[in-house]
Amino acid sequence: MPSDLESTIRFLEETNDPATAFFTYTVDPSGESGLIKANKQGLRLYAAEILRKAQQLEDTEEEKPEEPIDFAPLQWMFSETGYDLISGVLPQYQTRQEILATQFFSRRPARPRRHKQPVFLFILMCITGALIMLVTLKAFPNLRLWVNIR
């Protein structure tokens, strides 16, 4: 497998020119989701970088280092945000189930939310309305039309 991986990485790097490649991270117009903005050469070179990190992870699996494997500065990778959104790979050596079990279920479970009483909200709205009416009558004394009706 490592020889296949190395030949794939070498093929991707040899067939794509870094001078024409473009790759960056951005967000969609709503600002809710992250996007990759790239041409095909940039995507292929980024795939080669990811495969190279997978190979490094495979090579150091016996030592299991905890420090990130950083990406080298690349001329075809740009940052629209002013900083690198993804600067490297943090190695994980467990399966997805093991990782999720240790990260997400170690926290205490969320308590169910109590529903607010509708009576309390109704009383609060009545008090707010009465206060607004009193402030309005003090600010505009001519609004008491029912007093001047004959």
Rank of each mutant, 00 (worst) to 15 (best):
E6V: 11
S7M: 08
R10C: 08
F11K: 12
E13Y: 03
T15V: 06
N16I: 02
N16A: 06
D17S: 14
Y25I: 01
T26G: 10
V27G: 00
D28R: 04
P29F: 04
P29Q: 10
P29I: 06
G31A: 10
G34W: 12
L35C: 08
I36D: 01
I36G: 00
K37Y: 07
A38G: 04
N39C: 04
N39Q: 03
N39H: 03
K40Y: 04
K40H: 12
K40A: 13
G42R: 06
R44F: 05
L45Y: 02
E49Q: 15
E49S: 10
R52P: 00
R52A: 10
K53F: 01
Q56G: 01
T60R: 13
E62F: 10
E62R: 10
K64L: 10
P65C: 04
P65D: 09
E66N: 12
D70Q: 09
D70A: 12
A72D: 11
A72P: 05
A72Q: 15
P73T: 04
P73Q: 11
L74E: 13
F78Q: 14
T81K: 14
D84S: 13
S87Q: 09
S87C: 02
G88I: 02
G88S: 06
Y93S: 01
T95K: 12
Q97S: 12
E98D: 11
E98V: 11
I99M: 10
I99V: 14
I99C: 04
L100W: 07
Q103H: 10
R107Q: 13
A110F: 06
R113P: 05
R114E: 14
R114Q: 15
R114M: 08
H115C: 06
Q117N: 15
I123P: 00
I123A: 15
L124T: 14
I127R: 02
T128I: 11
G129I: 01
G129R: 05
A130C: 12
A130L: 15
L131P: 00
L131Q: 04
I132A: 15
I132Y: 09
V135E: 01
V135K: 03
T136G: 12
T136R: 12
L137G: 08
K138R: 14
K138F: 14
K138L: 13
A139T: 15
A139L: 15
L143Y: 01
L145V: 14
W146Y: 05
W146R: 05
R150I: 00
